[in-house]
């Protein structure tokens, strides 16, 4: 489970990084992103809304979130 730490990065870099990495995910692959911007946990699910085969769940830790994206295609 490869995890990318995007905490403290200047917006909109996190959302761009997430979308770029998610677009090249193969089926069954799973990626974790650590974000600390409340806007990121709103925009990531909305931006990836069109990729229905993606399963996104967000786990809250004390001062950041883990965005776990799994490609359930095929």
């Amino acid at each position: 489970m490869e995890s990318t730490d995007l905490r403290g990065k200047f917006c909109p870099f996190p959302i761009i990084e997430v979308v770029q990495r998610v677009e090249v995910m193969e089926s069954g692959e799973c990626k974790v992103f650590l974000v600390d911007d409340p806007l990121a946990i709103r925009s990531i699910p909305e931006e990836l809304e069109e990729f229905e085969y993606l399963d996104i769940n967000i786990k809250k830790n004390n001062d950041y979130w883990e965005v776990i994206i799994t490609n359930t295609e095929g």
Binding site: C11, P12, I15, V19, S43, E46, E47, E49
Partner: peptide, 15 residues
């Protein structure tokens, strides 16, 4: 709108 512009430049401006 900083976030918004970034989304648009990336071609994902729907939100």
């Amino acid at each position: 709108f900083a976030h918004g512009l970034g989304e648009i430049y990336m071609g994902k401006g729907k939100r």
